[in-house]
Design a binder for these strands. Structure first.
Length: 547
DNA sequence: CGACTTTGACCGGCGC
DNA sequence: GCGCCGGTCAAAGTCG
């Protein structure tokens, strides 16, 4: 097997967040974290395959397969199962024919021919079946590629259009028609981007569940235009709704301002100039200096020291945190000089198998494909956090009664954890539970989004997860829509969040769809390691409901 | 030799 | 003001 290729057949069910983890994912592996940065839409997570068609077809076969189980195969079989099986069949048939011919050498040539014909027909039937299946996959593959290209084109066009719209907006203070139009464009842009991400993930199954776990809240957007999109509405929120009293994260007015989710080119310390790798410092814009920190944490089961999230990290420190015998490791992103993104990794004190990864900051460089969905998901989570903090500012608490409570299912309470006591807003997504999609109580959970798309939860297959459907598909229910791989659920969650101006409700709905009515493990704690004051969304909701 | 990790020192925020 | 604590720095060590 060539380096960097992870067989999609080895991906465990989504409901088992125990990741296939690379103990040292970045060293000497030629892993995709540093490659293909110029091909953000390439499929297959850095697969070195020279035959793109084969690779994609294999992935798609995996989507269609009902036997997506952990069945170790040989390398060749994992990458080219059809070809291997086909050649195997051919070999068997040939061998069988030879044996038949040999054993029947004393019989008449007509009888031998007859037997050969029968065997040949049997083999051809199976071969034909496989060929037909292969053609079907190729057809579907082409269709998905076209969809992806279309989504990318729309995304780029909207990006360009948005850039022009952003110009006049900067000169206007109050809400104008241009701003309104900008908001519309923003929504469209985010929608298209989410669609592209979902499609990319659909075609990209060569990844372990660990990055998928981090997909939910792993990192922040890298695309500068998209970042600007995320920043703009947030700034609007800040300007329009920021109260004059103490902000919810405990900081007085004026101490922090600007978009909390935009950390580009800023150090994590708000009042400290970013120090570059060459030792020099650069002055940060005033808005960045007072930037508020937002953190997104992910809890996942991992035996490795660090889960693979598609980015490249360098350890710069380790400390013994108070109250936890496990050391906390500090990493910074090394994919670009001066990238301000940091992450902390710490094991859970109660359960050493659980790894908590906390992300902070915004990448200032393109991400490899494996990290793209993760980035957008985290941006969405941070945006959700921001929107909640802004809308609940007058309550004097970080979480308002609407947070997650209304839209989310009770079973999701252990999935999303928000912090009401941390000095900065944080959200913790607990992926240590084992959602059982097969026992979903809601067989067809559907929630519409602004625009044409609809996210549908489908439990007909454990791996169906979410399907991204357009009105076109809804109008033609007879047309089969290929089920999306389970890992795409997280991207679909991203899509849900990004497509809905109400990030909270969208996140709640998306998470609800992820676990699909699963019953969380009551023995598992959803409390954030780094934040003892964290509480589950439902607990928060209940507490505020009583007030 | 370069990239990376380790680890003690240092810095700043915060509570008392 | 002082001490605690989280976070970062940077020199030394390690590894391939």
């Amino acid at each position: 097997m060539a380096k960097g290729w992870v067989s999609p057949l080895l991906i465990p069910p989504f409901g088992t967040p125990t990741a296939i983890l690379d103990p040292d994912p970045f060293r000497g592996r030629g892993f995709n974290c540093t490659s293909d940065t110029n091909k953000p839409m390439s499929f297959g997570a850095g697969s070195p395959s020279n035959n793109e068609e084969d690779r994609v077809v294999v992935n798609e076969l995996d989507f269609f397969s009902d036997e997506r189980k952990v069945t170790p195969r040989g390398d060749a079989g994992a990458r080219f199962p059809i070809e291997k099986e086909t050649s195997s069949h051919e070999s068997d048939v040939n061998t069988g024919l030879r044996l038949v011919s040999d054993s029947r050498s004393e019989k008449s040539s007509d009888e031998g021919r007859s037997l050969s014909d029968v065997a040949d027909k049997l083999g051809r039937n199976e071969l034909g079946h496989l060929h037909a299946e292969l053609q079907l996959m190729n057809l579907e593959n082409r269709r998905l590629k076209e969809m992806l290209v279309q989504a990318c084109n729309s995304y780029n066009a909207l990006q360009a259009h948005l850039a022009t719209l952003m110009q006049p907006q900067q000169n206007n203070l109050g809400p104008t028609a241009a701003q309104h139009e900008n908001n519309v464009e923003r929504k469209l842009l985010e929608k298209k981007k989410s669609e592209a991400i979902a499609l990319k993930n659909l075609l990209d199954s060569g990844d372990s569940i660990a990055p998928r776990a981090q997909d939910i809240a792993g990192n922040l957007l890298t695309d500068k235009k998209i970042r600007g999109e995320s920043q703009s509405p947030c700034n609007n929120i800040m300007e329009s709704s920021a109260p004059s009293h103490k902000s919810l994260d405990g900081y007085p007015d004026g101490k922090r301002s600007g978009s909390p989710i935009d950390f580009e080119a800023q150090d994590c310390k708000p009042n400290k100039n970013a120090r570059l790798s060459n030792g020099t410092t650069v002055d940060q814009p005033s808005a960045d200096v007072t930037m508020r920190k937002t953190r997104v944490s992910v809890r996942a089961i991992s035996e490795a020291s660090m889960i693979n999230d598609g980015c490249q990290w360098r350890k710069y420190g380790q400390k013994m945190a108070k109250g936890n015998p496990c050391p906390r490791a500090y990493y910074r992103c090394t994919m670009s000089a001066g990238c301000p993104v940091r992450k902390q990794v710490q094991r859970c004190q109660e359960d050493r198998s659980i790894l908590t990864t906390t992300y902070e900051g915004h990448h200032n460089h393109p991400l490899p494909p494996a990290a793209m969905s993760m980035a957008s998901a985290t941006t969405a989570a941070a945006s959700m956090l921001l929107s909640r903090s802004m809308s609940s500012s007058d309550s004097g608490n970080f979480v308002n009664p609407n947070f997650l409570g209304r839209a989310i299912l009770p079973c999701t309470s252990s999935m999303a954890t928000i912090s009401a006591s941390a000095p900065f807003p944080s959200v913790t997504l607990d992926l240590t539970h084992s959602p059982n999609l097969q026992t979903a109580q809601t067989p067809h959970l559907q929630f519409p989004f602004p625009g044409q798309e609809t996210l549908i939860y489908n439990n007909q297959s454990q791996f169906s997860g979410l399907q991204l459907m357009s009105d076109h598909h809804q109008a033609q229910p007879s047309q089969p829509v290929p089920p999306v791989a389970a890992d795409t659920v997280l991207s679909a969650a991203t899509a849900a969040i990004a497509a809905d101006p109400n990030f909270t409700a969208a996140l709640a709905a998306a998470i609800s769809s992820i676990i699909g009515g699963a019953h969380p493990n009551p023995n598992s704690s959803a409390t954030s390691l780094s934040d003892p004051g964290s509480e589950t969304a439902n607990a928060v909701f209940d507490r505020y409901e009583q007030q």
